[in-house]
């Protein structure tokens, strides 16, 4: 074989670089039409990891969601430079346990990330999530910083407000997306949960969606499906949310739920927080637009 000349190497490289932006990207998946109530597992206890194991077990175990060789994304809330006791981020033990279970079910790679509000390095550190993930000692679990060159502008199928937006490609291309929010107070929406946690895959000036948050969050969740939702209510931030500060507004609830229906998950979280789900704008709109079932009376709770 003739050796590659420098000129030819550069030429090939430039051509490859020019073609790269046109490589096809998977389109956002449209939602299913008629929502069928799906089971929700509810557990209580003091050990967050054990809660995760039991709740996921009640839904058939992690193997029901993760097949061997899958690429999995665990998307906790790591938005803030706050400690676990301050309840502004998902509990580190919940995150680590989900990653561990996914790997045990055969996941090839588990990515953990959030597009944070405070400095990502500080938030990953002080949330305790970096330490918890590293303590797994598993190269197949990667706590990653979100990189802005990995956002792609996506047309969101079925959207009313959020028709086009840059979304995080690793979240779109994952085989399984595990959404694990923490239950928190929020000044604008009253309470923030799984649907809003998905804002962590949004790029750009995402504060903009506050201007029509209910419709936008439904649009986002219709396009990016959470395959498993684990709601962390081990601690609940009851005021000064969503970032709190100190432990005065923190209520230790020792509860957790798992389901595949992001709307049911949020309805459960709202109930635990102490508000009527139908009073929360985005939960009501999600229910009305068929994203899922917010009427907990119809949801089989295990």
């Amino acid at each position: 074989m003739t050796p590659l000349s420098r000129r030819r190497f550069l030429g090939l490289g430039l051509r490859a670089a020019a073609l790269a932006p046109w490589l096809p990207l998977p389109l956002a998946r449209p939602a299913r039409a008629a929502p069928v109530p799906r089971p929700l597992a509810e557990v209580r206890g003091e050990d967050p990891a054990a809660l995760v194991r039991t709740a996921v077990g009640k839904l058939g175990g992690m193997a029901a969601f993760v097949r061997p060789g899958d690429r999995v994304v665990v998307k906790p809330n790591i938005g803030w430079d706050r400690t676990p006791e301050e309840a502004a981020n998902t509990h580190p033990a919940v995150v680590a346990e989900l990653a561990r279970l996914a790997r045990r079910a055969g996941a090839r790679l588990v990515r953990v990330f959030d597009r944070t509000c405070n400095d990502a390095r500080r938030s990953y550190e002080r949330s305790g999530i970096r330490a918890a993930v590293e303590a797994l000692g598993d190269d197949g679990v990667r706590l990653e910083y979100v990189r802005d060159d990995r956002f792609v502008v996506v047309a969101l199928a079925g959207a009313r407000k959020l028709t086009r937006w840059p979304l995080y490609r690793p979240a779109l291309t994952a085989d399984v997306l595990i959404n694990c929010p923490v239950v928190k107070h929020h000044g604008l929406t009253g309470v923030t949960l799984a649907m809003k946690n998905l804002m962590g895959v949004m790029g750009g000036n995402r504060g903009r969606i506050h201007w029509d948050i209910a419709e936008s969050l439904v649009d986002l969740n219709l396009a990016v499906r959470s395959h498993l939702v684990v709601v962390d209510a081990t601690r609940i931030l009851t005021r000064n949310g969503p970032q709190g500060g100190g432990t005065e507004g923190v209520r230790v609830a020792n509860r957790l739920a798992a389901t595949t229906d992001v709307v049911a998950a949020d309805a459960w979280g709202a109930r635990v927080f102490g508000v009527d789900p139908m009073e929360v704008g985005y939960i009501r709109r999600a229910h009305e637009r068929g994203l899922g079932v917010a009427d907990l009376g119809r949801v089989p709770v295990r």
Binding site: C117, L188, G207, H210, W211, I213, Q243
Partner: peptide, 9 residues
């Protein structure tokens, strides 16, 4: 119209 991004942060 509601916004409150400042308050959130």
């Amino acid at each position: 119209r509601n916004c409150l991004v400042c308050e959130e942060h």
